[in-house]
Design a binder for these strands. Structure first.
Lengths: 246, 246
DNA sequence: GTTGAGAACTTGTCTGAACAAGTTGGCCCC
DNA sequence: GGGGCCAACTTGTTCAGACAAGTTCTCAAC
């Protein structure tokens, strides 16, 4: 948090949060903000661009910016880490590894993780819960180069993301999430304490490093009575896409 | 498409699409691009910022930008309009209104559409299909001020979005989508030609104008064997958030 | 060969200025 | 009171330059 424009974006976010600028009200003009913070207009524009991308404020040429919402979307870190998300809500995350083994990468694994087929990759089946109640079943495949760091982690570690960062400095930078619905199978039903054929929200995701190298891919199934996902988007900024089944 | 930086962003997108820059390769330096297009570095930065937000290229201070993916995400217009999306895939969109009536706004409607409870709002139940096969059931509520423009539209109009734009100049600028899974009810099953209790992907969305005024909200149910959603995000740009059921 | 220091390169941040394009509010006239 | 026009205001776009901070490559020393 060195950059001045990030500091200003943060101050504006907080001001909106504590309703100094209420929803529907107009933000000061760029020149006023620039004078107030003692920076140039370009720097202010970088700050407000961030808030616009988050959907906190709307903007039209010629008119003052308008505050659209107060609660801001989660950070990528919070989305990535189940434990961090739970903590932010004041809930306790639990986790338990059910099975863990090396298998040769299938063709699908190879494509998703950019490896050669047959490379041994680490499969982990993990149940995650909030305050003890199971809500998520994770079937994760880790790339060969990170597997050695994942393998020794104890089965009930609440935050794998945190552990990998502490141990290896690994940070997740990009994610691609494909979302659909499936009926719970026998194993799903058992581990999530729901009836068979209950609808589950399935999120298949690939996470990569800053350089774009895939680290892991996962088939996550959420109890749809416990968890949902929300996406905010706009004309300028659209991360959501509809897809047909292949 | 007047702005130079948008033109440049588009040219770069196309160049990546036709694999002039292949995935994994490095983009020319900002100064080179600036010289090539005859603009300043600031303008180039605006262009590449757009591609970075879309997840097409990755970027680290000090190192040249890297091409991460080739297929670009859909525009907001394509997400908003079922018909436009279908056309982009070379499929034909069909639509049929099953029921349409005015009802007084419930408390929930009032909150979502920013109206007073009791205001008459237009409810529309619509089935959408691809090449004749039903894939989506839309239960939409339109705000009172747009209802008069929606009401006279013929029941089998393939693109309501297009009609509203042509007739009233209305453009949708922001969207909030909440995604979860539900079991098909009797009506859902009937209209979508699936068995009862099949898993459906539910997308509850609110769409607003450029000024942040809500236009409509909708409960969309997709056949999960036909359609899924994908979200691309990053540390800089995260539109996706996990939520607990209230 | 390996290592380490350093130079060259590249992206990130910020400034100050200018003009274009769109919105808003007030004033005058009818 | 209503309508229309204009001036003031505000955001969008672009430029040229400067320095900071991180990466990559080269080359000399060991």
């Amino acid at each position: 948090m060195a950059a001045r424009h990030e500091e200003i974006a943060d101050e504006l976010r907080r001001a909106i949060d504590r309703e100094e600028y209420t929803v529907g009200s107009r933000l000061p003009a760029e020149t006023d903000l620039a004078a107030h913070y003692g920076v140039s207009r370009g720097t202010v524009r970088q700050a407000v661009a961030a808030l616009t991308a988050e959907g906190l404020i709307g903007s039209r040429q010629g008119a003052r910016r308008v505050v659209l919402a107060s609660r801001r979307s989660q950070s990528f870190a919070e989305l990535r880490s189940f434990a961090q998300w739970a903590r932010a809500m004041g809930r306790e995350a639990t986790g338990q590894v059910i099975a863990q083994e090396y298998r040769p990468a299938t063709a699908e694994d190879a494509v998703r993780l950019q490896l050669r087929a047959g490379t041994p990759v680490l499969h982990v089946l993990r149940v995650r819960g909030l305050d003890g109640e199971p809500v998520l079943l994770e079937r994760t495949v880790y790339a060969d180069w990170i597997s050695p760091a994942v393998e020794p982690i104890e089965p009930d570690c609440p935050s794998v993301t945190q552990r990998l960062y502490d141990d290896t400095g690994l940070v997740f930078a990009y994610g691609e999430h494909v979302i659909d619905a499936v009926a719970a199978g026998a194993q799903d039903a058992d581990l999530l304490s729901v009836r068979r054929t209950s609808p589950l929200l399935r999120v298949r995701r690939v996470t990569t490093t800053r350089e774009g190298r895939p680290v892991e891919w996962s088939d996550d199934r959420y109890r749809s009575d416990a968890v949902s996902f929300s996406v905010h988007n706009s004309m300028d900024n659209n991360a959501l896409a509809r897809k047909t089944a292949e």
